[in-house]
């Protein structure tokens, strides 16, 4: 049953979809950016608490598919404690993993995020996985209040 999909829907993804981590509104967030994928209606708000260039807390709200929910949930876990530069490097790695060349991905750096590598075989779903990271990118650059994948 759904054998072909094992690479895409790994157990970790179901788990994060069922019980997303850091799923809360953050009072006094330093950054708050909304990410929107008009194609499928995925919508999330990302909150960051910064200590100079360090992300000390990350949380989110919103609704989306399992891939996008798991992606943002995992992301909020992994970026906590990272500097802006480290988070940007992770973003680049994540981008490479989902859309670029496999051999360019540093598996150690990517860690748990590797469960999302399966989307590369599903071009229609890549944006679901990357929405969280584009939103983070916008939040770190402090550019906009709202970003869209389209």
């Amino acid at each position: 049953m759904f054998d072909d999909l094992r690479d895409l829907y790994q157990e970790v993804i179901f788990d994060h979809n069922r019980s997303p981590r850091n799923f809360r509104v953050m009072e006094n967030a330093d950054r708050e950016v909304e990410g929107f994928n008009p194609l499928c209606g995925d919508r999330l708000t990302l909150f960051l608490k910064m200590d100079s260039d360090k992300i000390v807390d990350a949380s989110f709200q919103g609704s989306g598919c399992a891939i996008s929910t798991a992606s943002v949930s995992l992301m909020t876990e992994i970026v906590k404690g990272k500097t802006e530069a480290e988070a940007e490097t992770l973003f680049k790695q994540f981008h490479e993993m989902t859309t670029g060349k496999e051999e360019n991905v540093n598996l150690e750096a990517i860690g748990k995020l590797a469960v999302l590598a399966g989307v590369r075989e599903y071009p229609a779903r890549v944006k679901c996985a990357t929405l969280a990271w584009h939103t983070l990118d916008a939040a770190l650059k402090n550019e906009q209040k709202s970003i869209s994948t389209e």
Partner: peptide, 22 residues
């Protein structure tokens, strides 16, 4: 609790083409 996009991808793996979206 299951997003239409997940429904679409899962059904596709069974050879079923439906539309998921707005």
């Amino acid at each position: 609790k299951i997003h239409p996009h997940d429904i679409g991808t899962m059904l596709d793996s069974l050879g079923i083409a439906i539309r998921a979206g707005h």
